[in-house]
Design a protein around this nucleic acid. Structure first.
Length: 700
DNA sequence: CCGTTGAAACTTTTT
DNA sequence: GTTTCAACGG
């Protein structure tokens, strides 16, 4: 094993000083404040490799990332660094996958069986809809998504109480739904995403589980720490209590998930719980040009709720940022596409990304791209596993695995059509409820008309046959068999439409994925779990195509050329985020995240009018544009544009403060083009000529 | 029980 | 402009 390891010197070569510090500080708590593009992933992967090279057992290392894809990439990079295939790899995953792993092992301690189902987002919506119907609530104010959002938020914030605390009639109803929701999950041996965080946390209070986890993981690392929520923090902090080797990496300027319960104050919690923690700041940016970094800084500096810091780079100044004012959303899309087309002569398509605030904004871009025949991928649209046909087959699999899953049962009982409608389903489930019987028995014994009874019985024998088959053949063959045995494929074939053809193609793809689990222990379960926990982020493919995605999805990525469209009030910042300072500042961070994804070129666009809810409406240019100094921007296009950029960010006579030179006053502005120099007279050291971007000056 | 039809609601961001 | 859902007739 030793000779295949990369030497420690090799691991540290090419890292700057703070990076080296972060990589080599492996004993004790560590907080890494990593600015955008400061080589964070590099530090994390090198740190894992360094730990292993220093003799730590790989399986004792836990790394928690934001997406499965990020985890996978880390695995690959670490393996590459170490140049060694281990059979006890480090545990690199998302919080939810980790929580699932814990729960599969200890489910029985909370009254679940290990074959429990995991309800993903669309399952949750379906369930709440069903509960609303059950309870006879028709009031439009009670729609599933806001209810789920409230339940999740309060539950996370209040430490998983039996009843949610909150004021008002709305909350009372939410609590009624909440009670039924939780009861339903239990009865169905199912957990939702929040359970995968909160249940492991609860189990960590139990001695055996805590001992097991603390004993297993000697080193814990958390990526994107600014986007973790309090229970997530609790989990890692309890696990790390024994060895105290907890390393968290984050950037408060990139915190964009507070609406999901993420709390930047976790940084303070960390400092409170681990007062001996070492703090390393990574402030050198290796990604972007100076101009992009300058613009980004001018946008983010206006936030009041942040720690002042400024990234620096040795990269070239680069091109100015391009602003294009479009007549409408179609014109905007055409502009973006024409630019991509032009630049694609000298760059591969994989260099281009287009960011927007809301998913709905992708449409005009998609249309323009297809019109020009440019390949693209939309990240964050409909997941593969959310397609109807895939969900149907997965529901069958889930029912085979967990016969108590009535949500899955409802989905498949009449797909394809078997003459078993709403009425019959209700009778069966009601019967089960009254007699306290498992679904299985209810199907056989419920009182229904004789025609339905025969159909129910044949459905039961179908399931029984499937259960037997699942144990006899490799997973991919079983999935294939299931699609035929249930009549699903035949029904699709009978349709004979192009759409049905596409669905069948997707199902073939599903079988291909199943092949990966053919010789895996508990392959069926792993396969189903993957369907629940895979996100559209994870489905990002490498290849020669343009990438389209929301700003949220863009976090953690980088592209040589970035377009940010829809730079309008109401979109960025979003209309629903303009109420409070806190949410407005989050929108600003979103803008900052977008800018700092760009390596070479950044294009900003907005439209004079935009199709919205079916009619054209006009929105003013985004206030964030105003924060960018004029000199960093180049305008393109014929449309008259009155975007009010900042003329100069520094005014003559303005008082400033420099960390080294102390207080002073701007005497003159010098420099030409995009380079701005400040002549400043300092009280203590006299006159200095400073590059504005490197001055690290504070106003006031 | 099933498919069609027309109106009404609908868009923030996602593990 | 698109998706969802209730109502109705076969």
């Amino acid at each position: 094993m030793k000779k295949t390891l990369t030497s420690i010197e090799d691991l540290l070569a090419g890292l700057n000083e703070p990076q080296k510090e972060a990589v080599t500080f492996i004993s004790g708590p560590l907080l890494i404040l990593a600015g955008a593009g400061s080589g964070k992933t590099r530090v994390i992967t090198h740190r894992v490799a360094y730990l292993i090279a220093s003799g730590e057992a790989p399986e004792g290392i836990l790394g928690l990332t934001f997406t499965n894809k990020a985890a996978q990439e880390m695995k690959n990079r670490v393996a590459h660094l170490i140049g060694y295939k281990w059979h006890n790899p480090p545990f690199l995953s998302t919080f939810h996958s980790f929580g699932l792993w814990v729960m599969r092992r200890f489910a029985n301690m909370l009254g679940y069986t290990p074959d429990f189902s995991v309800y993903d987002d669309s399952d949750q919506v379906a369930l709440v809809k069903q509960i609303l119907k059950e309870m006879g609530i028709e009031d439009r104010r009670f729609s599933p998504r806001p209810i789920l959002a409230t339940m999740s938020k309060l539950r996370m914030a209040q430490g998983d109480p039996g009843e949610l605390k909150g004021e008002g009639k709305w909350m009372d109803v939410v609590n009624l739904i909440y009670a039924r929701y939780r009861e339903f999950l239990r009865q169905n041996n199912a957990m939702d995403f929040d359970d995968l965080i909160l249940y492991p946390l609860r189990l960590l209070e139990e001695e055996p589980v805590r001992k097991f986890l603390q004993g297993r993981f000697h080193h814990i690392m958390v990526d994107e720490y600014q986007d973790t929520n309090p229970p997530q923090y609790q989990i890692v902090s309890i696990m790390a209590r024994k060895h105290r080797n907890l390393c968290v990496v984050g950037d408060d300027d990139q915190s964009i998930y507070s609406w999901r319960g993420a709390d930047v104050r976790n940084v303070f919690l960390f400092e409170r719980d681990f007062p001996e923690a070492k703090v390393v700041k990574l402030e050198e940016n290796y990604r972007s040009t100076q101009i992009i970094l300058d613009a980004a800084w001018h946008v983010i500096r206006e936030n009041t709720l942040r720690k002042e810091k400024r990234l620096f780079t040795a990269n070239p100044q680069g091109e100015r940022i391009t602003l294009y004012v479009a007549t409408d959303e179609k014109n905007e899309a055409r502009y973006v596409v024409s630019k991509i087309k032009e630049m694609s002569k000298v760059r591969p398509l994989s260099h281009f990304a287009v960011f927007y605030r809301t998913n709905a904004q992708s449409r005009p871009l998609e249309e323009a791209l297809s019109k020009e025949g440019i390949p693209y991928q939309v990240v964050g649209g409909l997941r593969f596993y959310d397609r109807k046909e895939i969900k149907d087959i997965i529901a069958y699999l889930r029912l085979v695995e967990n016969p108590n899953d009535t949500l899955a049962f409802r989905r498949v009982i009449n797909t394809p059509k078997r003459g078993l409608g709403e009425r019959t389903v209700e009778r069966v489930l009601h019967f089960c409820e009254q007699e306290g019987l498992p679904l299985w028995e209810g199907l056989k014994r419920a009182e229904v008309p004789s025609a339905q009874r025969a159909r129910l019985l044949s459905f039961v024998s179908l399931l029984e046959e499937l259960q037997a088959a699942s144990k006899e053949m490799p997973l991919s063959r079983f999935v294939d068999h299931l699609m035929g045995a249930t009549g699903y494929i035949q029904a699709l074939e009978a349709e004979g439409t192009i759409e049905a053809e596409a669905r069948m193609e997707n199902l073939r793809e599903l079988v291909n994925v199943a092949v990966e689990y053919d010789h895996v222990e508990n392959g069926l379960r792993e396969f189903i779990d993957r369907a629940s926990l895979t996100t559209s982020q994870d489905e990002r493919k490498e290849g020669l195509r343009v990438t389209l995605m929301t700003l949220h999805s863009a976090k953690g990525l980088e592209f040589p050329v970035v377009f940010m469209v829809g730079m309008e009030e109401g979109f960025l910042p979003h209309a629903l985020s303009m109420e409070s300072l806190a949410s407005l500042e989050e929108e600003r961070r979103l803008c900052y995240v977008g800018f700092t994804r760009a390596k070479d070129l950044l294009f900003l666009t907005y439209a004079k009018k935009r199709l919205y809810y079916g009619s054209h409406r006009t929105f003013p240019p985004s206030r964030f544009l105003r924060s960018i100094p004029q000199r960093l921007v180049k305008r393109e296009g014929k449309t008259p544009d009155t975007t009010p950029f900042t003329q100069e960010e520094w005014r003559v006579g303005e008082p400033v403060f420099h960390p080294a030179f102390g207080p002073g006053r701007v005497k003159a502005l010098e420099g030409s083009g995009t380079t701005l120099k400040l002549r400043v007279r300092f009280d203590r050291v006299g006159e200095k000529l400073l590059l504005a971007r490197l001055a690290r000056l504070k106003k006031g």
